[in-house]
Design a protein around this nucleic acid. Sequence first.
RNA 1: GCCGAAGUGGCGGAAUUGGCAGACGCGCUAGGUUCAGGACCUAGUGGGCGCAAGCCCUUCAGGGUUCGACUCCCUGCUUCGGCACCA
Length: 841
Amino acid sequence: MEDNKYKFWEIEPKWQEYWNRRGLFKMEEDSPKEKFYCLVMFPYPSGTLHVGHARNYILGDVVVRYKLMKGYNVLTPMGWDAFGLPAENAAIKEGCHPADLTYRNIAAMKNQLLHWGTGYDWDREVAACDPEYYKWTQWIFLKLYERGLAYKKKAAVNWCPSCSTVLANEQVVDGLCERCDTPVKQKDLEQWFFKITDYAQRLLDDLELLKGWPERVKVMQRNWIGKSEGARIDFRLVGAGLKPAPTLTCFTTRPDTLFGVTFMVLAPEHPIVGTLVKDNPRRDEILSFVEKARNENLIQRSTAGAPKEGVFTGLHVINPVTNEEVPLWIANYALMEYCTGAVMAVPAHDQRDFEFARAYNLPVRVVIQPEGEILRPETMREAYAGDGIQVNSGPFSGLPSREAIPKIIEYLKEKKLGAPSTNYRLRDWLISRQRYWGAPIPIIYCNACGIVPVPEKALPVLLPPVKKLRHSSQSPLAEVEGFFHTPCPRCQGEARREVDTMDTFVDSGWYYLRYLSPRDSNRPFDSELVNRWLPVDQYIGGVEHAILHLLYCRFITKVLCDIGCVKFQEPIKNLFTQGMIIKDGAKMSKSRGNVVSPEDIIKKYGADTLRLYILFIGPPEKDAEWSDRAVVGSSRFLNRLWQKVTEEAERLRNLPKIKIEIPQLSEEARGLYRATHLTIKKVSEDIETSWHFNTAIASVMELFNQVEKFRPTVSVSEASLTENILSLQILRHSLESITLLLAPFVPHICEELWEILGNKPSLFEQPRPTYDPEAIKVGEIELVVQVNGKVRGHLVVPVDLQEEEVKARALEDENVKKFLDGKKVVNIILVPKKLVNIVVG
RNA sequence: GCCGAAGUGGCGGAAUUGGCAGACGCGCUAGGUUCAGGACCUAGUGGGCGCAAGCCCUUCAGGGUUCGACUCCCUGCUUCGGCACCA
């Protein structure tokens, strides 16, 4: 039966072409239907997509097709996160232009997506490296600049010597460059920043609004923002002979330990250090320590548990509440980036201070005594950071430490010695990159006018062609004279362009807005459309973007909202973070050589098998181990389904339509009808409530196993003609239901089978089946009978049988009786429709 | 160190207002079909005892609550992820 073969290689291109022709994935501009914006994280055009990426896009496609069948007006756009380092590095290596490489990769990856049957509105395609796109990335920079949210400062920045660029804090992992694992160095450079810290509190507060986000992502963002509440406390510096005596302010979350301060430490980078060493007899010692600490590898210096080192300044500060003079040190564990760079040290109650005190023989003073033990400085082996009762704390002695905190803050405030303060770990977003392949920062430096933003109408600042890219320690654009040489837009005098480009996270921070009017050359996005279509109803992507990308999107949206360009505070209503696909116990990567190519699977089994296996592999939010062998299971199932439908099609297609009346069905047909509707219910619930497509598919497989066993009534007698037709009708109903239920998962084969069964395409314009409550009603149910919690028998009873009668029948069961023999029935527990448990003593 | 998630057959995984543990699939075993290989079909498949009916054990370990625990509580172990000299 060669004809009956499941020819996926013919079917799949045919339907892909059909959907495209029919415009199935085009959003309808004016439609009374409810909108649904389904967004998948746009890929970086690296060259090829592996099955891990496929999971992302297939999940998105399932949602899109499901929503189409539910009658939504669906927006399903796709684009390319096309600027970035890898393309530039590859271009240097190959001696070509990154644009050529990028567009070649885009073409290849687009082709992949087409073959997976994932549906997008390709008319809305965007690429971040397209001048028509980055023009508006630059526009966003200008808007932030106008509001004082983009600023330039000299800062010690993270410098990757291998990528020869600055990295954002977020791109430094364990002191190493996120991309190439090179140890990151500190370098002082003039850099552009976005003032995301202004939005720290709002970014934190509004996490509450994100009901449709996974909890773990919100927790990660919360930790990243890192809010700490406490106080700023001023300590007067003495001994330097300076008048007036300068004040050193430190931040603490534990004002309750203030009476236990026995010294203070400054970060080596603290600006006051320069002043302190003047006329200081210890000058050389101090400067050599500072020099050493500043040159120390950032990884070592900023790792918990690293040895505490410092140098005494010879100077003292005054504890504002005790008026006691305590020594001032400079120590490697104090960080200039966090808050004021000065730390009041309480060795008894802070582990780092404790280690430092022990190393340099500084006093330890206990001011909080825990319940049930007495701390003695001489015998302490570590700091006690918990709660307790205040001791040696002047007027606050005797108070529980929790209660002392607000009282001490209040006291400081009254005496003008300090103030309540909130601090965040979040730093401003460093966006300057000394690289070529990114959006140029639209700024001009004029000798006369200073920093001048490029006028909006002069956008885009185009990336100039370059002859040959190479690795260098400065921005490639600094070598293109025709680029940086420019008249000042204000005075027309001689001026210079900024030669740095923007971090690519700026590009991806707003792309979801551009999709609504991707070809509009007059504005970045159409506010009216954007306000109608956003927030994004469903965003799908990898959890690796939980912090950076998603935080930046939220930030940019809030800024645009403040400017009045959009009317919503949060861009993403529902977020789904899918798990990784693991191979041989590790993440797929070219260097590991464990990449599974979707194309290989498609060639052998077809795109629908690929899709089915990826969806069946496990719950989509969890990581899953890829198994080449297990793929055949999905292929087998589709083949069996194909065989069954094509075999039955002949007699089902021309079946006279008779309304299904449950009472007229044979027992077998009624069973199948019921199973069909239970499956419809189960699949709908799995999709709606949990996205557990693996169990949805399993239940369809179960139903299909039952369909294969089903034998329609074939009787010759005139009287049973209706029964014959009805039983075939049920078979047809089951097969059609299976086709409709599976359609979002395996769309090609389902379209084909739908047509073979005598229906008109596209089945995505069909409503999804809903379950018939009548169909799943039953007259009899099976109960479990337990004795002392162990299953001893089963009981089939009418649903509405009286409780007493059910109990009586349970006691009659032969096997149950064996366990009751000679024992006393203490209790009988009856769970309606589930079980009877007989408790014996 | 802090925060979070998870631990169930040979494997991926099912089962949650606490109610038959192991659905579905892979693999494996036996049989059929096939010139052969593959594909396909039928039956079986957590461990132990038994001809069978059935019985005992089993959801990381140990305790607890309950008529009943993979599910809830406590203690511990392991794995993974995030943050980390953040004052």
